[in-house]
Amino acid sequence: MTPDPAPTATRARLASGAEARLEELITEVRRDPGRLSRAVARAARVVGRGPNPDGHRVEDVARARLVAAAAEATGPAGASAVVEDAYRTGDADERRAVLLALPDLDLAAAALPLVEDALRTNDARLVAAAMGPYAAAHLQAEAWRHGVLKCLFVGIPLTAVADLEHRRDAELDRMVAAYAAEREAAGREVPPDARALLDRTPSNP
């Protein structure tokens, strides 16, 4: 029997003291979603930072849950504007948390511009967070393939890419093979993740 997968950032729970501090911030944001930007900026200082036992980071969980609370309190009509504002006014850590929250926010494809913005950066933390389940569900094929390739380029392990085996297609395989050939021609190392992807086929997972 395989263990349950780790919860997404918005469903993760923290140790009791941190959880209580986060609940206080969440209450504040539910009452007035306009306070989200300030709450997200302060979240790590108020709630805590560092690894959480479930594999997330405490500050990511705190910020993702604040974003989710504000989106819920605002209602479907305004949620995507709230999420976009949290991303646009956030620093890199805050933007990362917004990206981690996206799969649970019921925004359909409305937040895709944020994912595309993150994929234009060279910040590995943002690129990795952008290639999660939300991108797997909504990002169009061309952009998604370039996202996978970018992970290989900037050294992000492909475990960061959600649904890789399900979404990979012949065009992605061609692009990765071309990348590997270019590296080989230059006498450079081919990232093991690129090799592993090419060695794995749907019939030989």
């Binding site: 997968p5 780790a6 919860p7 997404t8 690894p51 479930d54 594999g55 997330h56 980071r57 799969p103 910040d123 590995a124 933390r125 943002l126 690129v127 990795a128 967070a129 290639m131 999660g132 389940p133 939300y134 797997a136 569900a137 992970c151 900037v154 050294g155 992000i156 392990p157 475990t159 960061a160 890419v161 959600a162 649904d163």
Partner: peptide, 14 residues
């Protein structure tokens, strides 16, 4: 690992 963007657990398969 955080600087490399590596998740501490594999991304949830959604």
């Amino acid at each position: 690992t955080l600087q490399r963007g590596e998740p501490l657990t594999p991304a949830a398969q959604g």
